[in-house]
Design a protein around this nucleic acid. Structure first.
Length: 461
RNA sequence: GGCCCCUUCGUCUAGCGGUUAGGAUCCAUGGUUUUCAUCCAUGUUACAGGAGUUCGAGUCUCCUAGGGGUCACCA
């Protein structure tokens, strides 16, 4: 049985990097028919908010990731942590430290000045005297003072860190509130985690947590530290690099399946495969295939994937999604015609919506340059002929509209461009866009003629 | 600064001692298309540098450089 987890601290929205590590954890649990748990790390801090919890859950919901059981809130488990603190104190594995913050700062400055690593010097480790007055102590854990703390990381391999690098760190603050590395170890153990997949910014927390595991006699899980995602320049991803909030991708018109596909391939691969459905991800994912090196964030591929998923999305789902982007064609009897004519031209739902609007809404103005390029002296004459033939034609499908265009070309002995360009400008006000026959089939004869007449009128003004 | 991790086309990556170093994206060109897009084809571009080990190194070892992470009574 594999149990994984995602353990965000609710200080803001769900970050793209957080989504990737949770995706990995989720996939691994689902693949093994195990458990994927959610734990909210809200051990106080004025920074935590309920809105942030909501935001994270909302993002999970959007991408379709679900966790098992109830979400666990650390803030509700203080009694548990307290119990273990007392246990360690009793067993002599932890101790009270009466060093003040000022003293600690002074010690650090001294060490810094000497060019040493800043660390607690263990002065209260074996203290038995009378504690100084007026100082509320913190609790520190006794970390090993020599040897190595080693673990086998599922991504990075064997990691060895000298015990001297890990000092007797604080497990409970002066107010009694436990600290991060302490509660994480307890929760991961108590929740039965077998595999901890997280960002490699936690790599250095691992030896500390191992100290806790060992002090409490807990079984140490497998760790997988996934390298960070950097921006295109290889620097740390920040808000200035564009969207980092998962929900922003929804607003930008990305499909969740595209985003997941994009993220799963960032730092993980399965041979040459690029397109993965969620089912395939679950089937093929294995943390042993996670890359050691960090990867750079580049939207090109996401855009390509998004276009791919839009092209392959069922029309009823697409129509539903488009509502949020100001286009409601759910009840439109030309729905399929509209989507077929436009979906290959929109890399995002935003672009797709604007393509559709371009057809659905008659042009209110014509670009002068386009107009001049498309409309020549004989254009009105050609368009009039076209309209005449159009009215007479038997129009049942897209191809029939094309036949009318062909007829004009033949009759007038002109090139296709002679009719195509002015027609396009008349109908869309644009020089590019969907196929003319498709557009006309969507608009119908009346609207088509109306738009052409309007354009002809415009040339005479 | 100490410690730890990382380094293959611009980007995402395959490779697990013997390959013309592969795929994808991007870009360019050509084809298809009335246009644009799609689609198809073709092309440019990479083993950070230096020593070793080996018959043979992108793959193993060491050094250098560069990048990242971390050093809290934050999480």
């Amino acid at each position: 049985m594999i149990t994984t987890r995602f353990a965000p601290s609710p200080t803001g929205y769900l970050h793209i990097g957080g989504l990737r590590t949770s995706l990995f954890s989720w996939l691994w649990a689902r693949k093994n028919e195990g458990q994927f748990l959610l734990r909210i790390e809200d051990t106080d801090l004025a920074r935590n908010s309920e809105e942030a919890v909501e935001a994270i859950l909302k993002a999970f919901d959007w991408v379709g990731m679900s966790y098992d059981g109830e979400a666990i809130f650390q803030s509700k488990r203080f009694n548990l942590y307290k119990k273990y603190i007392e246990q360690l104190l009793e067993e002599g594995k932890a101790y009270k430290c009466y060093m003040t913050k000022d003293e600690l700062t002074a010690l650090r400055e001294e060490q810094m000045a000497k060019g040493e690593r800043t660390r607690y010097d263990g002065r209260y480790r074996d203290f038995t005297g009378t504690p100084p007055e007026g100082v509320e102590p913190v609790i520190r854990i006794k970390a090993p003072q020599e040897g190595m703390i080693s673990f086998n990381d599922g991504v990075k391999g064997e990691i060895n860190i000298a015990a001297t690098e890990v000092d007797d760190f604080v497990i409970a603050r002066a107010g009694g509130v436990p600290t991060y590395n302490f509660v994480v170890a307890i929760d991961d153990a108590q929740m039965g985690l077998t595999d901890v997949i997280r960002g490699d910014d936690h790599l250095y927390n691992t030896p500390k947590q191992i100290v806790v595991y060992e002090a409490l006699g807990f079984k140490i899980p497998n760790f997988y530290h996934v390298a960070m995602i950097n921006n295109e320049k290889g620097k740390k991803l920040s808000k200035r690099d564009g969207a980092t909030d998962v929900m922003e991708y929804k607003t930008l018109g990305y499909l969740p399946e595209a985003l997941l596909n994009f993220l799963v391939r960032l730092g993980w691969s399965h041979g040459d495969q690029e397109i993965f459905s969620v089912e395939e991800m679950i089937e093929l994912f294995d943390p042993k295939d996670i890359n050691k090196s960090s990867s750079n964030y580049n939207l090109d591929k996401l855009l390509w994937l998004n276009a791919h998923y839009i092209k392959n999305k069922p029309h009823d789902e697409l129509a539903e999604l488009l509502v949020d982007f100001g286009v409601d064609i759910r009840e439109n009897d030309k729905r399929d015609l509209i989507l077929n004519a436009t979906k290959e031209r929109g890399k995002t739902l935003v672009e797709l919506a604007s393509q559709i609007n371009l057809i659905l809404n008659a042009p209110t103005e014509y670009n002068a340059k386009n107009f001049k390029k498309a409309f020549k002296e004989d254009t009105p004459e050609i368009l009039n002929t076209f309209m005449k033939l159009l009215k007479e034609a038997d129009l049942n499908e897209v191809a029939d509209y094309h036949k009318v265009m062909e007829a004009v070309v033949e009759q007038k002995e002109i090139g296709f461009g002679k009719i195509g360009m002015p027609l396009r400008v008349s109908l869309l006000g644009s020089m590019t866009g969907s196929g003319l026959d498709e557009i006309m089939a969507i608009l119908g004869v009346d609207e088509t003629i109306k738009r052409i007449n309007k354009a002809i009128e415009f040339i005479n003004v």
